[in-house]
Simulated scan of single mutants.
Amino acid sequence: MTKTISSLLVWFLSVLTNNLLAQKETSFIFTDAKQLTLIGKALSTDSFFHRIDTVAFPGIPPAVKRLLTHSAGLAISFETNSTRIAAKWCTSPQGPGNNMTAIAQEGMDLYIKRNGQWQYAGVARPSTHECNEFVVAAHMAPGDKECLLYLPLYDETLSVQIGVEAGARLTAKPNPFKKNILVYGSSIVHGASASRPGLAYPARLSRETGYNVINLGVSGNAKMEAAVAEMIATMPMDAFILDCVPNSSPEQVTERTANLVNTIRAKHPDAPIIAIQSIIREGGNFDESIANRVAQQNGNFLREIQELQRKDKHLYLVTAENLIGDDHEGTTDGTHPNDLGFDRMLQKIRPAVLEILGSHGI
Rank of each mutant, 00 (worst) to 15 (best):
G330C: 07
D53W: 06
R207G: 03
T45S: 15
G283M: 07
L357T: 06
H314Q: 12
F57S: 05
S289C: 00
M140S: 04
A124G: 14
A102D: 13
A203K: 02
P269W: 01
F286S: 15
L323G: 05
S206V: 01
L346H: 10
E307N: 12
S92C: 10
N322K: 12
K113W: 06
K24Y: 13
G299C: 03
A295C: 05
F48V: 10
T263W: 12
S27E: 14
K178T: 14
L36R: 04
S159N: 10
T45L: 11
D144A: 14
K65M: 10
S47V: 04
A63D: 09
N262A: 08
K313T: 15
P246A: 08
Y211H: 05
G163S: 08
L148T: 09
E79R: 14
L20F: 09
T45A: 12
V189Y: 02
A141T: 08
R169Y: 10
I273P: 01
A87K: 01
F28N: 03
M235H: 08
L8S: 07
R196W: 03
T319A: 14
H139T: 12
F57G: 06
T101C: 06
W11C: 15
S187V: 03
T335Y: 12
S187G: 07
D144L: 12
F134L: 01
L21H: 05
V245P: 03
S127Q: 14
A137Y: 00
S248T: 15
P93M: 05
I39E: 01
D333W: 07
S7I: 14
A166V: 07
L9M: 13
S249I: 04
F48M: 09
I280Y: 06
G299D: 05
G217E: 05
F28M: 14
L242P: 14
A56H: 06
T91V: 15
D238L: 06
V189H: 03
D312Q: 10
M100Q: 11
E25G: 02
E304L: 02
P62H: 08
Y120P: 00
N98P: 01
K223V: 14
K41M: 11
I5A: 13
A42G: 14
F57M: 10
L153G: 01
I232K: 02
A229V: 01
I279Y: 00
A168R: 04
T17W: 09
L36D: 05
S289F: 04
K3Q: 14
L308E: 09
A22Q: 12
R51T: 03
A87G: 12
P96D: 15
N212D: 14
T69L: 08
L38G: 05
P269V: 13
W11L: 15
A291T: 12
Q309N: 05
A192N: 12
A227K: 08
Y201R: 03
I214W: 05
L158R: 13
N19H: 07
Q161S: 11
C147Y: 04
A222I: 02
A121S: 10
T234S: 15
G95H: 09
Y184K: 09
G59Y: 03
Q119W: 03
Q105V: 07
T80V: 01
N99M: 09
S71Y: 01
L148E: 03
E146D: 13
A291H: 11
V136N: 04
I5D: 05
Y111P: 02
I241W: 10
F12Y: 11
L170P: 01
V135D: 04
F342T: 12
Q306C: 08
A352Q: 11
R256P: 09
I273Y: 00
P96E: 13
F48P: 06
R256E: 05
V318T: 10
F240E: 02
